[in-house]
Amino acid sequence: MTKELAAKELGIGIIGTGFMGKAHAFAYRVALAAFPDIPVPRLEMIADVNEASAAKAAHQYGFARASGDWRALVNDPRVDVVSITTPNTLHKEMALAAIAAGKHVHCEKPLSPSLADSLEMVEAAEKKGVSTQVGFNYIKNPLLKQARDMIAAGELGEITGFRGIHAEDYMHDPDSPYSWRIDPVGGPGVIADLGSHIIGMARFLLGPIADVSADMRTVVKSRPVSRGAKERKGVLVDDVARILVNFGRGCGGTIEANWVATGRKMQLGFEISGDKGSLVFTQERLNELLFYRAGGDAKTNGYVKIESGPQHPPYGEFCIAGGHQLGFNDLKTIEMGEFLRAIGQGKTSTPDFREAYEIQKVVDAAIASSKTRSWVVVG
């Protein structure tokens, strides 16, 4: 290996071996194959509180080493990039330690349980000059970029409305046990867990949200303390959040987050209306974007399906044929590829810690609105 090539390597460390840890590992392994212009991601270390799980993951995903101590990973001189895929309450401590050690940091959303903690993380990263990214990978879909370009080009005309939703059903069973996900110590419930995705998507497409009026409800009032236990613990976080929003650009809209939507596995989508047309998207059919152009012949006019293909970069880096489709892990690979490229070029990658903080400001405004039953200005 030449010194020039070695200089383009980045040692990767992942904290956590669960669902998102696995997704990060897949993405780092594949990123170079899709994006040959990025620094070489060297799979250096993976850590988990369960050392056996870490060792198993290191073998399975091809990491050089494993550890039962995340601090060892953060402080290891061969690790340049730290991916944090742990529960929310651990994000701040891990991220600040990694930043202090001069590492670039990818953190899953939400950034932290509180807005103040998130701002501390943002300021630490910006002061240290490290690159950051937060796991809003759904906006990495080439068709979402296509939608944003169409809006910016005026193809929908003046935007008149936005309807967004992120609904799943993984918490609909009242006998599913109490967990970190619904512990208020980790922050709010569905509005942070799912709502942050659709809020981030709304901002990606239409820009900042100016003010909100929200209604947040707890549907399942208690849950077993463990699977099958008779003892139950009261639930204090939201299961459903419905928000009226006004965008800084002047249009209004609605946003819903719901993790008790029986039958829904991934209803992350939107409808954007303008005076010249509209766009419709759902993650359940993530390779399709529907476009309606106003003013056509009423007998034949309707939504046209835009199907993802090589004409929508970076789809072609994965497959040269249209209609063959991208998937969730491909979106994660695009996310990691863009992050590593930004690090290599000394540029900012987005959504970074600052954007995650802006998303969290909307979440906090919605919580305040629901409590006061009034409109609240964001930030």
Rank of each mutant, 00 (worst) to 15 (best):
F353E: 10
Q325D: 15
P314T: 06
S67N: 13
N141S: 12
N141C: 15
H312F: 15
Y357F: 15
D117V: 05
R242N: 13
S112P: 00
A100V: 03
M1S: 14
D193Y: 07
L143T: 03
G253V: 11
V49K: 15
A147E: 02
I15K: 03
I12M: 11
G189Y: 00
T254W: 10
I199Y: 02
Y292H: 12
E120F: 01
N246T: 11
L279Q: 02
T254F: 13
T2W: 05
Q60K: 07
R71I: 02
A152F: 14
P36G: 08
R227E: 03
V377L: 05
A54S: 12
M1A: 13
T17H: 01
D80M: 07
F270H: 12
G327C: 08
E358A: 15
V134C: 14
Q360C: 06
I12T: 07
L111K: 03
S53V: 00
G344L: 06
S118G: 13
P113V: 01
Y315I: 14
G129N: 07
G296D: 04
A366D: 02
R227Y: 11
D352R: 06
Y357E: 05
K332V: 15
Q267S: 14
R227K: 11
V190N: 03
V280C: 00
D173N: 14
S308H: 04
E307C: 05
V49L: 15
V79G: 02
D330E: 13
H166K: 08
V185K: 02
I199R: 01
F353S: 03
P313G: 01
R341C: 00
L96S: 06
G263R: 01
F35H: 07
N301Y: 02
G18W: 00
A72Y: 03
D215H: 06
F26S: 02
K128Q: 15
E284M: 08
G274T: 10
A95T: 06
P39S: 12
P110S: 02
A98M: 05
G189S: 02
D117Q: 14
G200Q: 09
D352S: 11
R341G: 05
